[in-house]
Design a protein around this nucleic acid. Structure first.
Lengths: 219, 219
DNA sequence: TCAATAGTGTCTGTTAGACATTATGGA
DNA sequence: TCCATAATGTCTAACAGACACTATTGA
């Protein structure tokens, strides 16, 4: 992990907003730096791809690469007052089983520990960006196993979007987007009717692909 | 302008996609570098804001700062094969009267000269990003004088979005978004009924601001 | 049987897009 | 007058959201 002893490898830093669904809530990985808390970050190595570096950062903290990861727009200003570096935010998602190393922990998104104002703003910005592009990126599917119920999928969407969705409308939108395909398997989860399992199977559609619209409200 | 003789000021470059409306078409400023053509770029000075640097770049090329400008998401990889730099794309708009210096020229968006593949991809990406966020950023108004007709506004929207909009729907969306206010002036443009002049006057609205939706089609 | 969850059918208010109509200038 | 453009009203198909209903399991 980069600290004050680490040799400066480049002039840009990577800040990582790594998310995971744990116990039905969206969590963000936060590192403990001495007494303070901060988002995981790293100096970008000269010549290396930023995304590769961000994945390496995720691997250092959780032992696994992120299941999905993308860069955001660099915010104005530098990460630390002492540095002259440009900071590129990355947002990623990872499975709930990834246990972070000692100096980091998962925190519920709505109860994040104190972060530097710039980091907090950056995290919110990159999360908003994710939510705006959820209809284009298959993020939710990376947080589920290859076969999942539609209720599970909707739950992940709700956590990532930060709001409730409407069941019938969600399924209609899914159908219209040709994103999932039913399998012939069913899963019984305690009481209630068993749920059919689906797979992520985006199909190209004549006349242009149709993105999932989520103007949907509380259901 | 940065060239091989310029002292390296930082480890990041800025690439500028500067747009202007000229003769009813969207143009992009392209620089001539020796025999080749390329997007204007600059090394980011250590410690300086990227946006300030991008505006300085626009001023160097056109004599004026961009009327609107924002950063995009850095693409993977470097700008030049020989450099190890990270490249941050900027997209901006400027007025049609800005004449570029000798080693640069406006080119219609649909007839851009040959660019390096990475630059071409970056330009398309940042333009797509602009189009996705047009409903949030008041870009179009920066390309018009303070008083404008709704036909002019619609035309700018169409050029920036790259598609035709529907007149009645456009005006309905504008009204719903509370973005413009009518003045008591009218402009007669040759033949036909004079058009009322409007001003950009975004009003906060109880219950959350409503963004302009443009699912509108050919009109 | 009841409870709980999955899945689906139907209705309605909203609205994007199309179309028609009126208004108002210049030629 | 005719034509061109501005501005507005109306209609319709599509659809988001709401609601209700059926289906299928376990307790």
């Amino acid at each position: 992990m980069p600290d004050s002893n680490t040799r400066r490898k480049g002039a840009a830093t990577i800040d990582l907003v790594l998310c995971a669904v744990r116990r039905g809530r969206l969590h963000v990985l936060v590192a403990k730096m001495g007494g303070a808390t901060a988002l995981p970050f790293a100096w970008a190595a000269d010549g290396a791809s930023l995304e590769v570096a961000a994945q390496e950062l995720a691997r250092q903290y959780t032992g696994h690469a992120a299941a999905w990861l993308t860069a955001g727009t660099p915010t104005a200003g530098k990460r630390h007052a002492s540095s002259c570096a440009l900071s590129v935010p990355f947002i990623g998602v990872t499975g709930p089983t990834t246990t972070p190393r000692n100096d980091a922990a998962w925190h519920p998104l709505d109860r994040l520990p104190a972060l530097a104002p710039r980091q907090k703003a950056m995290a919110e910005l990159v999360l908003d960006s994710l939510r705006l592009h959820m209809d284009l990126a298959p993020v939710a599917f990376r947080l589920l196993s290859s076969a999942f119920t539609l209720a599970e999928l909707q739950h992940v969407y709700e956590l990532l979007l930060g709001r409730r969705l409407h069941k019938a409308s969600f399924r209609r939108a899914l159908h219209a987007a040709y994103l999932v395909a039913p399998t012939d398997e069913w899963r019984s989860e305690g009481r209630g009717r068993p749920a059919q399992l689906f797979q992520y199977a985006p199909r190209k559609r004549r006349g242009g692909h149709r993105s999932v619209r989520f103007d949907l409200l509380s259901g």
